[in-house]
């Protein structure tokens, strides 16, 4: 059965030329096209429902289409990965049902793109800082060294736990500092939930096009200041994955 994969919603005057030849979700050969309804368009591609979605290439294709649109200064409302409707009519109906909300959210996001900053502590640097700042951890470490390995099992767990917590707490401080430094250059910020990596954090910013250069420069300043301690990677411009829900919520009920 052929269904319709929906990437996102864009203004209807949008042409599909930037994205039509990008690899589509589920089948890279499919064309990406637009289903229009009044002043809106849904970005879609045909797909067969024979296999479930979720391959690395599916995920990449979804993001690539949306980010390419975002990079052309098109406001785009990203739908959640895996949104599939029965056919093109259903996609059109989706636009009709949520018309006012989509329009308002697009207007709100017009002129903005998301940037996501990944900050990652550098191994030795963060461990040294922890040992320097927390004498009791260093002391425990010295004690363990004087014990045979079998005898220090619980102390080693305790040491590891203390270090883990200390690293997490430093991560949180760096995160707060980044926010404080960059938030003035962004319309909105979002912190991703902490991941398994206690030394890394992702922060997302909704940045106005006119502020983009200043924002990038400020992030670069941070990277220079923290060089050797914290590694910064900036992704973007991206579709507003972290901000679209708010942009819709502000319009009242989500369709």
């Amino acid at each position: 059965m052929v269904s319709c994969y929906v990437y996102g919603v864009v203004p209807g005057e949008q042409t599909s030329t930037e994205v039509e030849d990008l690899p589509a979700v589920a089948n890279a050969q499919e064309k990406i096209s637009l289903i229009r309804h009044r002043k809106l368009a849904a970005v879609v591609s045909d797909m067969s429902t024979e296999r479930p979605l979720g391959t690395p290439e599916d995920l990449r294709a979804h993001a690539r289409v949306l980010d390419t649109l975002a990079a052309t200064d098109t406001p785009v409302l990203p739908l959640r990965f895996g949104t599939v409707v029965k056919d093109a009519q259903s996609a059109g109906r989706m636009l009709a049902d949520g018309y006012d909300h989509f329009m308002a959210a697009l207007e709100r996001l017009q002129g903005y793109a998301q940037f996501t900053l990944n900050a990652q502590y550098i191994q030795d640097a963060v461990l040294r800082e922890v040992l320097d700042e927390r004498p009791e951890i260093n002391q425990l470490r010295e004690e363990i060294k004087s014990l045979p390995e079998e005898a220090s099992y619980y102390q080693r767990i305790q040491l590891g736990q203390l270090v883990t917590e200390a690293v997490s707490s430093k991560r949180d401080m760096a995160s707060a500092e980044i926010q404080q430094y960059l938030a003035p250059l962004a319309a909105s910020t979002a912190t991703s939930p902490p991941t398994a990596d206690e030394a890394a954090v992702d922060l997302s910013f909704l940045v106005k096009h006119t502020q983009r250069a200043a924002f990038e420069q400020a992030a670069e300043d941070l990277a220079r200041r923290w060089h050797g301690r914290i590694r910064l990677r900036l992704l973007g411009p991206l579709a507003p994955y972290d901000f679209v829900a708010d942009a819709m919520a502000d319009t009242g009920e989500v369709p």
């Binding site: 269904s3 929906v6 996102g8 919603v9 429902t49 479930p52 979605l53 979720g54 690395p56 995920l59 990449r60 979804h62 993001a63 409302l77 990203p78 739908l79 959640r80 990965f81 895996g82 949104t83 599939v84 409707v85 029965k86 056919d87 009519q89 259903s90 109906r93 989706m94 049902d97 949520g98 996501t116 990944n118 991703s192 991941t195 992702d202 992704l235 991206l238 994955y241 972290d242 679209v244 829900a245 819709m248 989500v254 369709p255």
Partner: peptide, 27 residues
């Protein structure tokens, strides 16, 4: 990279309630 993409898009984006939504096991 893939890890970036997963972090960026998973659980993000609008969930639309469409009558004709096709459910795909796996997601």
């Amino acid at each position: 990279g893939l890890a970036d993409v997963v972090g960026l898009i998973l659980d993000k984006g609008l969930v639309v309630d469409v009558y004709a939504r096709v459910s795909l096991v796996g997601i």
